[in-house]
């Protein structure tokens, strides 16, 4: 029976997993039983209404354990492509691959080659901005009529650095609260800032899909960067609008609070998005940080 439940879990209503959260709710699993460092779960689903999946993700992490203790280094990328004739897929994967390659070159390799005093490495935010800008040029050249969102998160120690363009999102989930890190580059987000639309309207607004900034639209691009602390016992969630547009923050928080494992949590998030309509491709990358 248990086995069958697991098999059909995607079809099951998400309601079962979204019981109201008790105040001060804790994880159903023991933090100490999880591996130290980063635990990653990821999933991408076509959804229920699209014919293709134009989302793309990258997940890569290494753990260095030496006398300084355990230093986790993780790179997580979500890109949501747009544009006809399969160009959306090209845009999102080119963006994800090019930006990943740059971060590996500028951060991962120097990290593994140790601290070279006389050859200082590139500052992390410059490396991330450069990675996103290179992705922008590559998409502009390779898929000029298409575009993509691009959210690149680098976990380094107990910090997360995010470079971001578009309306995919990065969240930190800590102490039963979901904090949105990124700011959507959408028309509706601007309207909300000006008080011309309510935050609730964002999900239903007729112009909710209009972006004012995206990868691959020209030579120059302004990139937002964020630096947040990523405390032990919290989650980093990267997702495309196919998730946050279908599943409310409250529902996401409930799933993250009650899911038995990170992998179960992403499965339930995707299932909930499909349950609520699955209007777009759904991608979620979830990173849990344990003791270091």
């Amino acid at each position: 029976m248990n086995f069958l439940q697991k098999v059909f879990s995607r079809e099951r209503p998400a309601v079962e997993d979204t019981r109201p959260t008790a105040p001060g709710a804790t994880y159903p699993f023991n933090l100490n039983s999880l591996p130290r460092g980063l635990t990653v779960a990821r999933m991408s689903d076509i959804g229920r209404q699209r014919e293709r999946n134009e989302d793309c993700f990258v997940a890569l992490d290494i753990t260095l354990h030496n006398d300084d203790g355990l230093t986790p280094l993780g790179l997580y990328i979500v890109a949501d492509g747009m544009g006809g004739h399969q160009k959306g897929e090209i845009a999102s994967s080119v963006a994800a691959q090019v930006s990943a390659r740059h971060v590996i070159q500028d951060v991962f390799l120097p990290f593994l080659s140790g601290h070279d005093q006389e050859n200082p490495h590139r500052p992390i935010n410059e490396a991330l901005i450069q990675a996103v800008q290179s992705a922008n040029l590559a998409v502009y050249q390779q898929a000029p009529e298409a575009g993509t969102t691009l959210t690149v998160a680098l976990v380094f120690g107990h910090k997360v650095y995010v470079a971001h363009v578009g309306d995919s999102r990065a969240y930190i989930f800590n102490q039963a609260t979901l904090h949105q890190i990124t700011h959507d580059h959408s028309l509706v987000a601007r309207l909300v800032e000006l008080g011309q639309a309510t935050p609730e309207e964002v999900l239903t607004h007729t112009h909710r899909n209009v972006l004012y900034r995206a990868i691959g639209q020209g030579n120059s691009l302004e990139v937002d960067t964020y630096l947040k602390s990523f405390p032990v016992g919290s989650y980093l969630l990267l997702c495309s609008d196919g998730l946050w547009g279908m599943v409310s923050d409250t529902e996401i928080a409930q799933i993250l609070t009650h899911a038995p494992t990170p992998q179960k949590a992403v499965e339930q998030l995707v299932a909930a998005a499909n349950q609520n309509g699955g209007e777009d491709n759904i991608t979620a990358v979830l990173v849990f940080i344990g003791e270091s």
Binding site: Q196, A197, N209, Y212
Partner: peptide, 16 residues
């Protein structure tokens, strides 16, 4: 589907 670019000249209330 997702679109890129806005009209740029329109007032905020027009989107209501």
């Amino acid at each position: 589907g997702t679109m890129i670019g806005t009209e740029g000249y329109s007032p905020p209330e027009q989107y209501r």
